[in-house]
Deep mutational scan, measured.
Amino acid sequence: NQESVVAAVLIPINTALTVGMMTTRVVSPTGAPAEDIPRLISMQVNQVVPMGTTLMPDMVKGYAP
């Protein structure tokens, strides 16, 4: 099972992602793949992402898996 990126903390809208904001988990439906964490760092979210929420590609500005 592939791990997806999950918010480790509450991420406010327009916040640039840091490694400490993200964790990985096997979830369904799958979100952004765990191996993309290095690409996701410094990208901004376009909505509030509550802690424990799977990071879906459409939540991150300019990100395409």
Rank of each mutant, 00 (worst) to 15 (best):
N1M: 13
N1Y: 12
N1I: 13
Q2K: 12
Q2W: 12
E3R: 13
E3L: 14
S4H: 03
S4D: 00
S4K: 01
V5C: 07
V5L: 00
V5W: 07
V5F: 05
V6P: 03
A7L: 07
A8D: 04
A8L: 09
A8Y: 08
V9C: 13
V9Y: 06
L10H: 15
L10F: 13
L10A: 06
L10Y: 14
I11D: 02
I11C: 06
I11K: 00
I11Y: 01
P12D: 10
P12E: 10
I13H: 05
I13Q: 12
N14K: 04
N14G: 12
T15I: 07
T15R: 05
T15C: 09
A16R: 15
A16G: 08
A16N: 11
A16D: 05
L17Y: 07
L17M: 04
T18Y: 08
T18S: 10
T18Q: 11
V19L: 15
G20H: 14
G20F: 13
M21S: 06
M21R: 02
M21Y: 05
M22Q: 07
M22W: 05
M22P: 07
M22G: 07
M22N: 06
T23Y: 11
T24Q: 08
T24E: 07
T24H: 10
T24F: 09
R25I: 08
R25H: 07
R25F: 08
V26T: 09
V26W: 13
V27S: 03
V27W: 09
S28W: 14
S28P: 01
S28L: 11
P29Q: 00
P29V: 01
P29T: 04
T30E: 12
T30Q: 15
T30Y: 15
T30N: 14
T30D: 09
T30M: 15
G31I: 00
G31L: 03
G31N: 05
G31W: 04
G31F: 02
G31S: 05
A32E: 00
A32S: 07
A32Y: 14
A32F: 15
A32D: 03
P33M: 04
P33K: 06
A34P: 10
A34L: 04
E35N: 12
D36P: 03
D36C: 10
D36E: 06
I37S: 01
I37N: 02
I37A: 03
P38Q: 10
R39Y: 11
R39A: 07
R39N: 07
R39W: 09
R39E: 04
R39F: 11
L40Q: 02
L40G: 02
I41V: 14
S42D: 12
S42T: 11
S42A: 11
M43D: 03
M43W: 06
M43R: 11
Q44E: 14
V45L: 07
V45S: 03
V45K: 02
V45P: 02
V45E: 05
N46C: 10
N46R: 08
Q47Y: 08
Q47E: 05
Q47T: 11
V48A: 13
V48C: 15
V48M: 15
V49P: 01
V49E: 00
P50C: 10
P50V: 09
P50A: 10
M51F: 06
M51H: 02
M51A: 14
G52Q: 04
T53M: 14
T53Y: 13
T53L: 06
T54G: 01
L55D: 00
M56D: 01
M56S: 04
P57I: 08
P57Y: 10
P57F: 08
P57C: 09
P57T: 05
D58Y: 15
D58N: 14
D58I: 08
D58M: 10
M59A: 03
M59S: 04
V60D: 02
V60I: 14
V60G: 00
V60C: 06
K61C: 12
K61D: 13
G62D: 11
Y63W: 06
Y63A: 02
Y63M: 04
Y63K: 04
Y63V: 03
A64F: 14
P65G: 11
P65C: 11
